[in-house]
């Protein structure tokens, strides 16, 4: 770097950078440290607290309810990896194609739900799924399937899937656009040929296109992983984690432990473990990708 003309004393740089950084530390890092501290105590809001060592973590390790919610997070990840990225890939091929009219309009429409508040999306889908006057039940009645009935939010087997549909609806546009951006780097004649000439070639070109999109897809996978770990409002408003605990996720569990059950000490431990788990997931995926990348090159 030619820094001759761009030299500044460290102090001067700090004068610029530190105010913002300190605010960041105060708003994000300090709460985490406080939580870490509280998680070693028995403090539930009473005037005095005492240290209990690793007790909260020992309970957490054996807490079936917590690990069940973590498994639910993983289930969401599994479903969303397929639905969001898979559908987005198909959508992208379509919208990218020069045979489609008003491509820009399609792009904007598909993307629209991504800007809505998750809490609003949760409430919308709650009405959509209602068995008596929900949108789906009404559409089915309208086209003659009077007896069509799915217990979208009442069946423990369905509920994660139902919520995943809502999530896919909200975010598929975002993934579509990312994948489209990735596709723009690929010679477009491959795509065109794939689309024009029918299904057989679509399949064949998928096997050509997909490897070329490796980096883009890996970005999408990371987004799904971190997206699911920070999910909260949508599930909160659509099912509250129910029926029972069938759709409870770690963020909701921490919330319940802190604010419903008032175990502030234990909830702190849950929050700390949540951070560790999601950083771990991302690290594992990165490692996996770099292994894969290494093998390629």
């Amino acid at each position: 770097m030619s820094k001759k003309s761009l030299q500044l004393s460290t102090g001067k740089i700090y004068a610029f950078v530190l105010p913002g950084f300190i605010l960041f530390i105060f708003s994000l890092m300090l709460p985490l440290l406080i939580s870490l501290f509280i998680s070693f105590t028995n403090w539930k809001g009473q005037p005095n607290m005492s240290f209990v060592g690793l007790k909260n973590y020992a309970i957490l390790m054996k807490d079936v309810k917590f690990w069940l919610s973590f498994v639910n997070n993983l289930k969401f990840m599994g479903i969303l990896l397929v639905t969001q990225i898979g559908l987005a890939f198909i959508f992208a091929i379509f919208i990218q194609s020069k045979s489609i009219y008003y491509r820009e309009a399609h792009r904007r429409i598909i993307f629209l739900p991504a800007v809505l508040a998750p809490i609003v999306v949760g409430m919308i889908w709650q009405i959509v799924y209602n068995n008596d006057y929900g949108m789906i039940a009404s559409v089915m009645r309208f086209i003659g399937f009077e007896n069509f009935k799915v217990l979208w939010l009442d069946s423990p087997k369905m509920v994660i899937f139902s919520i995943s549909i809502a999530l896919t609806w909200q975010y598929v546009g975002q993934f579509t656009i990312i994948i489209m951006a990735g596709m723009q780097n690929i010679n477009s004649s491959i795509l065109e040929a794939a689309v024009i000439d029918g299904a057989g070639i679509i399949r064949r070109s998928v096997s050509i296109v997909l490897p070329l999109l490796k980096n883009t897809i890996s970005v999408c996978v990371l987004m799904v992983i971190s997206g699911v770990m920070k999910m909260f409002d949508l599930v909160f408003s659509i099912s509250g984690g129910g029926p029972g605990r069938a759709s409870q996720i770690t963020a909701l569990y921490a919330f319940d432990q802190a604010f419903k059950v008032n175990k502030l000490d234990y909830a702190s431990a849950v929050a700390v473990v949540m951070v560790i788990l999601s950083l771990l997931l991302i690290a594992i995926f990165r490692l996996f990708m770099s292994r894969l990348g290494g093998a390629d090159e």
Binding site: S35, S226, M229, A254, A258
Partner: peptide, 24 residues
Amino acid sequence: FIYYSYLIGFLVPIYALLVPVFLQ
């Protein structure tokens, strides 16, 4: 240090902070 702090901040699931921020 600053760069990696921001990076960790970016990767932390934001709603894991609900309880911590509340406590603070």
